[in-house]
Design a protein around this nucleic acid. Structure first.
Lengths: 335, 335
DNA sequence: TTGTAAGCGTTATCAA
DNA sequence: TTGATAACGCTTACAA
């Protein structure tokens, strides 16, 4: 069915090896311009498409990249994945997408399947601060971390400036007159949860305040987990504003507040993090720290591509992008 | 680095071909149980993993399936993709995900790249009612349509019962006392847009009513496109309720209504379609027809897998799942 | 500048 | 039940 190098060679009347050389940009300069032209034409006519299994077998490169995320249905990831996809495919690489559901066993399984597929590299959005598997993996093939990182900085990464993002949030609230500000922290096993919590403490102290509460870490990045934790937090003492570690937690906080008879933003201001889709349409529209999710993905893909191309091992690179504050209706001046 | 059949063979002291037979479930019965056991153990010890490029080259099957969607960042798709992914990977197939952005040229390109990768089959969520490319494609490899279909029923598909979904919506509004009900229709090139519009007419007549307006077809499935169209529609005459062809259009309708000084649901009731994530949290919470998106994906994957396994061409199958109405705050009794 | 030939890791066929 | 062999389609020394 599909034409092969041999078919093209037969048509042009030359050897398949020459056709291969002519068609491969990296070797076509070894072939006379005339034959290159003839080969191109014949290839076009037969609509020859190189068989990646054959070339991959020969070269031991699949031109395939594994993309490991927690869960595609988490609205944070579709944009990130598109950033990755678009960049990788433009470079001739095919992304293979897998979900771990934040489950180490599942992760081991799906990463195993990616390695079985002989991916050339990995983009990983599931890093935990302690993550033995990743260190191992990084020795075996190029790995780039996105969004979350490990405690060790041995692996290249693309993240955002959590410190800056949280400071924007805190400063905004202080500007509105709030001083009883609490943080609903993300899971501590996650670098984002951890760093945002630390950044919160620093930002609050930077404002000459003391945190209204110790950070309340939540066990999962979910609305449900947030509802419970927020309820406890609100009961624990007077709070007029909450910086939640992400948008889901913010939504959970708002629900908890409502449950406790508080109205947002009248009685309590809430800020999220990420600016997921539709956060402008929820009730109330969510003030949040916008992370350039698609850019993060694109940047991670670029970083991995550079690793895949370089022969010599380059120094480990960490890219940080800057988030911005999006002010909407869930924050208001202190009454 | 990675162990090969030859390595395993050397350890066991037998021929690679026998190792291959022993390890392949479909041929292991040809090998004595003892050697199978020995081979399994050795393979385990060396952690041998078959090279899919090699076997793919030999068998001309990549164990790979192309998944063609309009845009992953459209919240309708992540769930559907997960349904597909989970089902395919459980069966040993790797999904290759591509986006067309609803652009025929892009579609041709990305489908080309999938065929270059030698996918064994295709799951396509981008069907237009007239879609020459798809007919062609269906002759070349197994294709399953999902969510949207072509005018021709030549290709197997997994969809939902639009007729039923729309009737649920209309009946709900009629039950609330509405009789001036309009339909904000989706693009007519899309089977979902077309069928929902037809279903609307039928449901309205089934209630002994006449449609408040001719269906207003929108040019794209977007909030923005909906805003404009809805504004015209609302200006064109008295309407107390709108059945929008999907959730984005419903959101646009609500915005348009607000812009026109109408409040939802007080002055106008609006129903969406699909029940995307967060539609319970928007303002007002959206009454909508819930489509079992993840199941659709899983079902499509199953259907394709059966096609991939069957030698004999089976009759073209069309699977229809049933949607349900989710009543929330965007609909209210006529005042 | 082109041809030759070997080999990447499998599996299918044939023979033993 | 197992072994030998060839072939899938491509790339790459090496030779010419």
């Amino acid at each position: 069915m599909a034409a092969t190098l041999k078919d093209v060679a037969r048509v042009v009347g030359i050897h398949p090896a020459t056709v291969s050389r002519a068609l491969n940009p990296r070797t076509s300069h070894l072939v006379s311009p005339e034959t290159v032209a003839k080969v191109r034409k014949a290839a076009e006519a037969l609509d020859y498409v190189p068989n990646p299994m054959a070339s991959g077998l020969r070269t031991a490169r699949s031109h395939t990249v594994g993309v490991v995320i927690p869960d595609l249905t988490n609205p944070l990831f579709p944009s990130m994945v598109r950033g990755i996809q678009d960049t990788l495919t433009r470079a001739g690489y095919t992304p293979l997408l897998v979900n771990t559901d934040n489950h180490p066993d599942t992760e081991a399984t799906v990463v195993g399947s990616l390695r079985a597929r002989r991916v050339d590299g990995l983009i990983v959005a599931t890093a935990r601060r302690e993550h033995p598997l990743l260190a191992e993996l990084g020795d075996a093939l190029p790995v780039v971390l996105v969004n979350r990182v490990t405690e060790s900085t041995a692996l290249p990464s693309v993240t955002t400036d959590e410190q800056h993002g949280i400071r924007l949030a805190v400063d905004h609230l202080v500007g509105l007159g709030h001083s009883e500000i609490a943080h609903l922290a993300g899971p501590t096993w996650s670098s984002t949860g951890h760093e945002r919590a630390q950044a919160f403490q620093r930002a609050i102290r930077g404002q000459g305040l003391t945190p209204a509460k110790k950070p309340f870490p939540v066990t999962a990045w979910s609305v449900e987990a947030a509802r419970e934790a927020a309820l406890k937090m609100l009961r624990a003492g007077s709070v007029t504003a909450v910086v939640a570690a992400n948008d889901q937690l913010a939504l959970g906080t708002i629900e908890a507040a409502r449950h406790a008879g508080l109205r947002c933003p009248r009685d309590i201001s809430v800020i999220g993090y990420n600016d997921m889709p539709f956060m402008n349409l929820v009730d109330p529209p969510l003030t949040t720290v916008r992370v350039p999710v698609s850019d993060i993905g694109a940047e991670a893909a670029r970083l991995l591509l550079s690793l895949l191309r370089d022969e010599a091992p380059s120094p480990v690179k960490h890219v940080r992008l800057t988030p911005e504050l999006i002010v909407r209706g869930s924050t208001a001046p202190l009454r």
